[in-house]
């Protein structure tokens, strides 16, 4: 009995919420568990999970990159403008478009990384600033308008099919695999955990804190650029509001996935689950027939509830372990 109880308590709140949600929508929404709909869910997860990959690294450091939504927006916008320059698109054009997207992402990442990693500026200030720079720049260059209708060859990146699976899902899966490797197996990934746990300890045990932090932000920027490609090719439109709220969804995916906001705990595997959870919930709400507005409210409430559950749970656990320490001592 005790064992069962412990097992129940060891599962993060998000997993319970996810299972409950699936069961609920399976009954409430027709065709929710059909193959086509599951593909739909995965498709809309693709950009989010890539964005959340970079965010996971930064949150593992105990910091937050608020700029990802803005960086995604400006990268997608500029790339969209570039693609619009040509009547017909060649493979070389697409390569350049990809390069532009990644370069803009990395440029913002470099800026964040330099200011936060090397110059030790407050990460809130800097990423909030670069976030509004990204959105503002996108608004400025488009004049507030929307670009749409890109070449089908470019859109193949997200909407093509390989063995019946949408290409954006495949790209996202490849990126996820690489990030899992980076997160769990490389020195860089492990250093991030060390810094997130205790910066002083990491510093004293020979971790190059500045460099690691710098590259975490660069990675986050690069991921924002890659997510921009996937999103641009999937939605077929770009504008100053493209990435609005994406930073919130990315943070939510990371936190729902069990990565602690104060760093050092969790990892990217959980984030993948968190991202799928968010898309699955949005999709289910849509199928049930709730408006976009309701989706926004419910998403906020669910995220807050999950975080609350985990915070309260860990508080109770802390108290219990304290009690054990005291009673053992006596």
């Amino acid at each position: 009995m005790n064992r069962v109880k412990r097992l129940i308590k060891s599962v993060p709140g998000s997993t319970w919420a996810g299972i409950l949600l699936m069961v609920f929508f399976a009954f409430a929404a027709k065709g929710y568990l059909s193959e086509r709909n599951i593909m739909n869910i995965l498709q809309s997860t693709s950009a989010l999970v890539v964005l959340a990959a970079g965010m996971t690294m930064v949150i593992l450091l105990g910091e937050i990159d608020m700029s990802v939504g803005g960086v995604l927006t400006i990268a997608a916008t500029v790339t969209g403008m570039y693609l619009k320059l040509y009547e017909t698109i060649t493979v070389a054009n697409i390569m350049i478009a990809l390069l532009i997207c990644c370069a803009i992402g990395v440029a913002f990442g470099l800026l964040n990384g330099l200011l936060i990693g090397y110059m030790r500026f407050n990460f809130w200030l800097v990423t909030f600033g670069t976030m509004s720079m990204g959105f503002g720049l996108a608004k400025g260059v488009t004049g507030g308008g929307v670009l749409s209708g890109f070449d089908t060859m470019f859109r193949w990146i997200s909407t093509g099919r390989v063995f019946g699976i949408r290409t954006c899902i495949i790209w996202a899966a490849i990126i996820c695999a690489i990030v899992i490797f980076v997160n769990y197996k490389t020195k860089f990934g492990l250093h991030i955990y060390a810094i997130g746990d205790s910066e002083i300890c990491a510093q004293n045990s020979g971790v190059n804190v500045k460099k690691t932090r710098f590259f975490a932000y660069v990675l986050s920027g690069l991921m924002a650029g890659l997510a921009a490609v996937l999103l641009l090719a999937r939605t077929n439109s770009a504008g100053a509001t493209l990435g609005e709220g994406y930073e919130f969804n990315a943070i939510a995916a990371v936190v729902i996935g069990g990565t602690a906001m104060d760093g050092g705990k969790g990892g990217f595997k959980g984030t993948i689950f968190g991202a799928i959870f968010i898309s699955a919930m949005k999709n289910g709400l849509q199928l049930v027939g709730l408006s976009n507005y309701w989706q926004q409210v419910l998403l906020g409430v669910v995220i807050l509830a999950i975080i609350l559950y985990d915070v309260i749970n860990s508080k109770i656990r802390d108290k219990k372990s304290l009690r054990r320490v005291y009673s053992d001592g006596i």
């Binding site: 709220g245 906001m261 998403l299 906020g300 807050l304 975080i307 915070v311």
Partner: peptide, 23 residues
Amino acid sequence: FVGLPPFVATYSMDWIVKGAVLV
């Protein structure tokens, strides 16, 4: 009381309230 980081609490609140007004 609950001990949420201010950023998380107020940012979620932002989305909830924004959505609530739209509803």
